[in-house]
Design a protein around this nucleic acid. Structure first.
Lengths: 205, 205
DNA sequence: TTGTTTTATTGAACAATGTTTATTTATATT
DNA sequence: AATATAAATAAACATTGTTCAATAAAACAA
């Protein structure tokens, strides 16, 4: 009898419904303004039901944060086939920046907001596979760069962190609305232009 | 009759009292958990009174954010007398990072949280003198570096933004608790070590 | 000292928030 | 049809920022 199967399928469906509503509200109005009650309203259920499908609000946003990482990873992997490691690193960097500029709200969730990592620390015992996947993509490039003579005397890890920090700093200043406030003339493509400047630096390593 | 003066002095005193309580709570418990009612409790006044001294919660935190910038600027200026511009830039960078590591909660307020800039956008019509002061300190270094032959072909502005983004990325990944989650071996002095790696890069420009 | 005006302060209210729990409704099993 | 199980709700709790009419306190004028 397929009753249990159907029930499981229905449970899955409602879970997806909640997640879809949460995602849609989150993209439109951001983290703070996406409340449990708003989500419940959107799916036409009572607020309480959400707690039968997710431990708390953090768990919902941890899931959305995972989706974001899958998306980012897929974007970066579109250039993973490039043979030249330094060229590949720059291309990946560009993909990273473009993703963040295109999806600022999700990016904030992935790298700045506390909600998803709070869930992580409590539940998954410190393993952050999502973040590690991105870190490893860059580290692979860095390692191959080192084999070609770049970054002499530096460890792969600290160089990888440096590159990631560069990328993160460029976009997070923009997302936190600070870069718009700086007294700068050429604000148009500030992020990409500055990455170009960083790329020139990399060439000289 | 010095009545008006005394009254003004008393008003100033209560304002300071509110600010002191807010600062103390904020340092201990962070932005979210510092509520108007907590502040009112701490100074033994009713919550309503705070709105006679500050427009809203954002204005309080804008003031604390200003204090943070004054502090950071003072720290960076302790090495402003160094003759060699590249050496000065590295020294300033270190001061910047050390400030952020020592005052993570204030740093987050200065460069990440929305509260202070929301107040700014509404009230001060887009001028962010606090941030500009830091930007200018670095820009001065960059300009002098360019005159010495560094950063050939790059504009001072985009290079300055690059340097600032580097610094910000290094510390904000740590403050947002992401760097602790990365699968990295040498986490001890990750920020400072990575800045060392960046410093080596700068030497080659 | 008394009455009046101005200022400072309060306390209660409002609309939101995340979360929990007892209760009810719906479904499935015997 | 009766019973057991699962799903969903409504109401409550303790918070939050903010507003505003009512009160208390102080300053001024007579």
């Amino acid at each position: 009898m397929g009753v249990a199967e159907r029930k499981l399928r229905e449970k899955e469906q409602l879970r997806t419904l909640i997640l879809d509503a949460a995602r849609s509200l989150f993209f439109k109005y951001g983290y703070e303004k996406t409340s449990i009650r708003n989500i419940a309203d959107a799916i036409e259920y009572s607020p309480g039901i959400i707690y039968h499908y997710f431990k708390d609000k953090n768990e919902i946003f941890h899931t959305l944060h995972q989706e974001g990482f899958n998306h980012l990873k897929a974007e970066m992997e579109t250039v993973a086939n490039m043979a030249d490691p330094m060229g590949r690193m720059k291309a990946m960097g560009k993909k990273y920046l473009q993703f963040a500029l295109d999806n600022p709200v999700v990016y904030e969730l992935m790298f700045t907001l506390e909600a998803p990592v709070e869930n992580l620390i409590q539940v998954e015992d410190q393993a952050w596979n999502e973040g590690d996947a991105i870190f490893d993509l860059i580290k692979k490039c860095v390692r191959e760069c080192i084999m070609m003579g770049y970054f002499r005397g530096q460890t792969a890890e600290s160089t990888t962190y440096t590159v990631l920090a560069m990328l993160h700093g460029l976009v997070s200043l923009k997302i936190s609305k600070r870069s718009n406030l700086f007294k700068i003339n050429e604000k148009e493509n500030l992020v990409m232009n500055s990455f170009q400047a960083f790329s020139y630096m990399l060439d000289r390593q």
